[in-house]
Design a binder for these strands. Structure first.
Lengths: 157, 157
DNA sequence: GTCAGTGCAAACTTTTTGCAACTAC
DNA sequence: GTAGTTGCAAAAAGTTTGCACTGAC
């Protein structure tokens, strides 16, 4: 059984519960978009969702995708990453909770890494007048490819 | 002496050095934009810089501001924050290094907080094939105002 | 004098909005 | 039936680009 599909059931149930609590309608479009989102193992953006759904012959407007992502973020099922200014990416929260991100400032490549200690430290943080729900740790730096490329450039001089 | 202006000298010198190393020109526009940036104690965006400069009767195009912010980021003097999708904010790196951010997911308010332990843990991180230059830790959650507001709404039902 | 740097406006991309049509309840 | 939901297209917001002019070296 794929972990993606396994989680998909739990996520769909959580969304159903959210819609019920908020007295929102359980429309086909909402559940179909969520279903497609659950198939992404990593980061995704609005365009990727739309394209994937077109490929599966399910026609939906981008406006609806934005609308539903807002609901999913409000429901705490999806988180937003803004690694660069022009491309906003999203990720399922249960996926995001398992790792942090290292972003290369030179080529924008995103690498995931795991660490046990830091999330514990962060969970222990007490911030005055603020209720902690989720955190995002991003390390910016240089990936090995860019480092190598820059070394070559210096030598070329 | 204001800390903002005190730092401004060091920052301007670092930028001068950067421009020299890269063989870029030390234009008036570049230094004037940097000067105005140094007056922001917290986060700022392109619009804020442009408005501040207009208010001081220094006319500059937004394109130049984008251009120069790119240089400042490359020089390691400014960092980019993307707390929300539609508003990219920047911050002087020496200011950003002193704190982390807590963002309210409901009203987008950004609160700063300090912690000694976590930056040390992060500095000790070893990520394969990646050179750590800077990090960004953002906690998402709910600020006390929104918590209060939501409590009232529930009671109202 | 030369070429990097800049301003301007237009182009481009991503996201939001208004309204008519649709559908879950 | 009646609201909430969706699609479409247009608008808005933010950023990038192309080109002619300017100014640092």
């Amino acid at each position: 059984m794929s972990s993606g599909l396994y989680d998909a059931n739990k996520i769909r149930d959580a969304f159903t519960q959210y819609l019920t609590e908020k007295a929102l309608r359980k429309s086909t479009v909402r559940f179909t978009i969520l279903e497609h989102i659950c198939h992404f193992r990593g980061h995704f953006d609005v365009e990727m969702i739309w394209r994937r759904m077109e490929d599966h012959n399910f026609h939906v407007s981008r406006a609806s995708i934005y609308n539903i992502i807002d609901l999913l973020m409000d429901a705490g099922l999806v988180v937003r990453h803004s690694f660069s200014s022009q491309l906003v990416q999203y990720e399922l929260k249960n996926v995001a909770a398992t790792h942090h991100h290292a972003v290369c400032a030179y080529c924008s490549a995103v690498k995931e890494f795991k660490n046990e200690k830091i999330p514990k430290e962060i969970a222990n943080l007490k911030i005055a007048k603020f209720t902690h729900e989720y955190h995002s740790l991003t390390i910016y730096g240089m990936c090995s490819k860019c480092k190598f490329r820059l070394t070559l450039q210096k030598k070329a001089k």
